[in-house]
Amino acid sequence: MDRIKRALDSDLFYSYKSSPLALVSSIVAAILIFSAVFAPLVAPHNPFDPGSLNLMNGFSEPMVPNAFTGDTFMLGTDDQGRDVFSTILYGMRISLFVGFAAVVFAMTIGIVLGLTAAYAGGRIDSFIMRIADVQLTFPSILVAMLVFGIAKGITPVHLRDQVAIWVLIISIGLSDWVQFARVVRGAALVEKSKEYVEAAILIGRGPAGIVFRHILPNVLSPVLVIATISLALAIISEATLSFLGVGAPPTSPSLGTLIRVGQGFLFSGEWWILFFPAMTLLLLALSVNLLGDWLRDALNPKLDD
């Protein structure tokens, strides 16, 4: 109870209450995430269950009863008669899962390497940071594509579709760790010279204990900000890769895959197959992005560039 009261009195909550943009975007993000997580309960159909599909329902327009079956679909159906609303919910699930997992992966690598670089210093530091510099020369989407291509080459053909999601997570994660490493290293260098670290050395704690138990908690707030902004970027990266056909497999379509498929129907006038997934992607990326911006202003940590 006490903790809740303290949280409600905090500066962070005050800033949240007084920012309409933060309120709206957090509500939108919460609704989207909730309906994605509980997609099997929220969605009217299961788009991956062939038994629930009726080919006669194909190409139903949104909110217009189908000419053959009389069924009405809120956001229309695709060529197979799949309810677009349901495919969006299931697709968002995959987009969000890949996004979250990739950010956690990037964050873990970035934190470990950043802390190591800051605490070890010297050659290890310049080696890690030099690699980070080289990677920064290349746009992260290119790095992700390359990792994806190499991983695809290594995986045996019959396993490719099954592991594609994990490959995607690793590709996006590996393309995004540099941000975290740089910020963590910068913050950790400042913390390292503080007295509490000297005290910890004096009482005989080992380097790993000092770095992870003492320094890490003090560098987490900039990491949180970067993580939120990275989540928006990761969702967009995932959508871009899937759109280009080098991402989620056709067996588990994400929002990007749905847009890729929808593009094919644009010329024949079935705009809703493309339009609604695209809008969902925009809404998701924009709300998470705005939330990240607000968090950055509210926590105001000193960020590198």
Binding site: A239, T240, F243, L244, L266, A278, L281, L282, L286
Partner: peptide
Amino acid sequence: SLPTFLIGIFLI
């Protein structure tokens, strides 16, 4: 904030 490919599709 719009992904490039969506802008492209929109213009098409």
